[in-house]
Amino acid sequence: MTEKPKLAVYWAASCGGCEIAVANLHEKILDLDAALDFMFCPCLLDTKKKDIEALPDKAIAVTLFNGALRTEENVEMANLLRRKSQLLIAFGSCAKGGCIPALANLSTKEDLLSSVYIDNFSVDNPSGITPSGTTSFPEGDIHLPALLERVKHLVQEVDVDYYIPGCPPESHQIWNVIEVILSGDLPPKGSTIGCGNLTVCDDCDRTKEEKRITAFRRNYEFYPEPKVCLLEQGMLCMGIATRNGCGAPCTKANMPCTGCYGAPEGVSDQGAKMVAALGSIMDIGDTTGLSESEIAGRVDSFLATIPDYAGQFYKYTLASSTLGGRVGR
């Protein structure tokens, strides 16, 4: 009997949702186990780092690497798994574009550490100790991985073969990817897989009409019409600028798409694209005869209905965006 190809699922700076998505394969996980040797997953299995280090290079057929790179340990594991894997797949939005952890790039590392460990009501830290590599105590040294200056996504550190989007990736799409890998019929290196090549609008069965938006409303403010495009109702739905394949579960539940599948095929910056699109359909009324400052005032009051630019437009892609970290609000 030939040995089954090895599968690893690793988490870096992540929440564990990607592992839950794998577990959500339900009975399919038995098929997965039949086809692959699921040998490394710190969340579910007891394999240790030293076991991986002991493997020959390229011994792992596929690694699904989720999470962003926040610490030196994350970087170390990314490099280790790259070396040991034939296919390294950026799995989920954190590994693909930085996702929530990368919103930390709006602040400096020093500010972050200060907020969490020093300037904080619930912390008593008179000697101002922060986790930064090795810290000495009378009882001995403590080693904690230091934070990087900025959060990275996987390809900013190592070579990546494929990307699977989603926060987390939908389980049926994970299975699709497993099937493609097992078939050996792989797309060109660098492709985004486990998704569609259109936008969420194609998955969403609400009716779409022409769009003019006078102000945005948040979902606690009203009950949206069940069959009408949420964006047209004034919800800031990112579906128009988000890759499809998820099946639009959010809009089906009356919630606007937050954009977790990232930029559509051919679009390099999801947030910028969304801003360009909204700028085109923003309706500030007839401006004939208005002064520049009056027009600017109308634009400002429109923009005031968007409370958090970075969190809205770059929730999943700030690390990979053209902006990097510089968003005003």
Partner: peptide, 13 residues
């Protein structure tokens, strides 16, 4: 057409 998802955004623009 292979990349248009039918969001209608372009029409009023």
């Amino acid at each position: 057409e292979t990349h248009c998802s039918g969001c209608h955004l372009c029409i009023s623009v």
